[in-house]
């Protein structure tokens, strides 16, 4: 098998430059910033937005909403998913509800939430409802992937349920949970922004996207979108790092030999 001598990082950078060049070419061909502004113009807006007195508050509030929605989904999704993974009867009870939530269009959820809740809570509620099914499903299949022989062994040796959960089920479920967490977090940023566009809370990237659309400020729209992508990327990387720490058995909490 041939091994490529090109560094993957170099290839990725070259790819980035290529797509930027394509964007620049398309902007030159269309020649109307209202449809497609040039990359440089968007970068200028990006820098200008950094000087906006509310900039960090806008970013902070959107991040706060994503983290609250994600945190709630993780807490409820993992707890309920683990219980459903352990008790099939419970899973049969919850699966129709989870399937219903998963199939409901985001826009219907947002509109309903606007009717029920205030503008700050609409994105959180929507984000929670969209992330929950992903985490619930990964928790159910994660728990199911635990080795039944190890569970049987632990039962025979009278290990406490908390010990079995922590040392048998959790290590088996972590890889599946990790995949679920990462995709739920990515989706969370998109759904929360969509919820903000319609609910228009005061400090929110979605509200800024809405304003940009109303005033046809396409460079602003793209600049805020880039900030959203950046935020999502940073938090996905952070989550990945945290979960890697847990998944690395040599660094995860162990029984202390020196006890």
């Amino acid at each position: 098998m041939k091994t490529s001598i090109i560094n993957p990082k170099t290839t990725a950078m070259a790819g980035g430059v290529l797509w930027l060049l394509l964007w620049q070419t398309a902007a030159l061909v269309i020649d109307q910033a209202i449809y497609l502004p040039a990359p440089l113009e968007v970068m200028k807006r990006l820098v200008l937005l950094l000087g906006d007195p509310d900039f960090f508050r806008v970013l902070g509030m959107t991040t706060y909403r994503v983290l609250v929605a994600f945190g709630l989904s993780v807490a409820l999704g993992v707890t309920l998913g683990a219980l459903c993974g352990l008790k099939p009867t419970l899973e049969h009870l919850f699966r129709p509800l989870v399937s219903l939530i998963r199939s409901t269009p985001v826009i219907s959820v947002i509109i309903l939430a606007i009717v029920w809740l205030n503008s700050t809570h609409v994105p959180i509620f929507t984000g929670f409802l969209m992330c929950f099914p992903i985490i619930w499903t990964s928790a159910v299949s994660g728990v199911r992937s635990a080795d039944p022989h190890l569970v049987e062994m632990a039962g025979l040796y009278q290990v406490r349920p908390a010990g079995i959960l922590l040392k048998v089920y959790l290590p088996a479920a972590l890889p599946t949970l990790k995949a679920g967490f990462v995709s739920a977090l990515g989706l969370g940023f998109k759904v929360i922004a969509a919820g903000e566009v319609l609910a228009l809370p005061r400090f929110a990237i979605g509200s800024r996207l809405h304003d940009a659309k109303v005033y046809l400020q396409i460079p602003d729209l793209l600049a805020w979108t880039l900030f959203l992508i950046l935020l999502s990327y940073v938090f996905e990387q952070l989550l990945d790092l945290m979960l890697k720490h847990f998944l690395d058995r040599r660094r995860s909490p162990r029984y202390d030999i020196s006890d």
């Binding site: 022989h149 040796y157 040392k167 048998v168 290590p171 058995r249 995860s252 029984y255 030999i257």
Partner: peptide, 23 residues
């Protein structure tokens, strides 16, 4: 009771010490 199975049934994410401490 204790049980020695055909396959050792050890926790893959625990050390020798951890496997003992677990039970």
């Amino acid at each position: 009771l204790s049980y020695i199975f055909q396959d050792p049934r050890l926790l893959p994410s625990e050390t020798v010490y951890g496997n003992m401490a677990f039970v």
